[in-house]
């Protein structure tokens, strides 16, 4: 697949604060790239550099094969940016917001463009209401609709679902996945690991100014650790005997009273554990194998810092 965005050794400092210290990443055409990182790790700063709002100190960014700083005007025709703060105009109606962007993009029929997008984002009923009176979810939908005016190929979304309830978040995920189906390249930042897991083709962890880990969601989960077997036992007697019996395994007692067996050696370890328990007649209420999550990777990477 062709590379849509290439970031090479980008450095950026604010006064003495070295926020980005050699960021490298590539986003392939038609994919979703999720940039993860703790608060203040520089996600928004990187996005602003790629969209030409901030100058970088050193480094190189290429979009569509064009070097960014020298071709900014041309490159701006091909993308839209949704900043972290929702950038709809609360005093204008939804229709007027879209019409404004369509006029600024010099499209031939701003009214039609606005109405089509309202329809597509399920906002036709709210067309002539002021955006200040929209719900948070509606404002985010409008925000993204505004970014789609003029059909840009690339969308930059800075924390698109922050502050949304689970239902609105799911709706917005559908919207984002649909954009990908339409061939758009999407670069988003997020604090929600589940979001990256659901949407992204490629994830990058930004930390201490670098991308410290990158890969597909399943590759990233493996980085975080291994599967674990959770055992839930009916009483303290059973727990005590189980702990004694399983002393050869990497086992730990959890706060909720369950036992967690590390499956580093492979998932077959769980068969051995379960067989041992049943041959020694230790009662078991339930058990489950827990796959590693992005949370594990995230915590692991942050701890390693």
């Amino acid at each position: 697949m062709e590379n849509k965005i290439v970031v090479n050794g980008v450095n950026k400092s604010f006064k003495n604060h070295h926020v980005l210290a050699g960021v490298d990443l590539t986003v392939s055409s038609g994919s979703i790239y999720a940039l993860l990182g703790a608060n203040g790790s520089g996600k928004s700063t990187l996005l602003k550099i790629i969209t030409g709002l901030h100058d970088m100190d050193t480094g190189e960014v290429t979009v569509n094969g064009l070097e960014l700083t020298r071709n900014l005007r041309q490159i701006r025709q091909t993308f839209s940016l949704n900043s972290q703060t929702s950038t709809t105009d609360g005093v204008l109606t939804g229709f007027e917001n879209l019409q404004l962007i369509a006029k600024l993009r010099h499209l031939p029929d701003p009214t039609k463009v606005a109405d089509d997008l309202l329809n597509q984002f399920d906002l036709t009923d709210a067309r002539d209401r002021r955006v200040a009176a929209y719900s948070g979810g509606m404002q985010r939908r409008l925000d993204i609709a505004m970014s789609l005016v003029g059909e840009p190929e690339i969308l930059f979304l800075d924390e698109p679902t922050t502050g949304l309830d689970p239902k609105s978040r799911n709706d917005l995920w559908e919207v984002i996945l649909d954009l990908k189906r339409r061939g758009k390249t999407i670069f988003l930042t997020t604090q929600y690991l589940e979001e990256a897991d659901q949407l992204a083709d490629q994830i990058g962890f930004l930390q201490n100014g670098h991308i410290v880990a990158t890969g597909t969601p399943s590759e990233m989960k493996k980085l975080g650790g291994h599967s674990r077997l959770q055992l839930i036992l009916p009483n303290t007697d059973a727990i005590e005997s189980a702990v004694k019996l399983l002393s050869d395994f990497d086992i730990s007692e959890q706060e909720d009273g369950s036992l967690m067996v590390n499956l580093d050696a492979g998932v077959s370890t769980s068969l051995k554990v379960l067989t041992l328990l049943s041959t020694h007649n230790i009662p078991l209420s339930s058990f489950q194998v827990l796959a590693p999550t992005l949370d594990d990777t995230f915590m692991q990477l942050i701890k390693g810092a």
């Binding site: 701006r76 972290q84 600024l104 993009r105």
Partner: peptide, 13 residues
């Protein structure tokens, strides 16, 4: 402060 400048300035205007 609310990012409207960012939106406009990231556009080809």
């Amino acid at each position: 402060t609310n990012g409207m400048f960012d939106r406009f300035r990231s556009m080809p205007i």
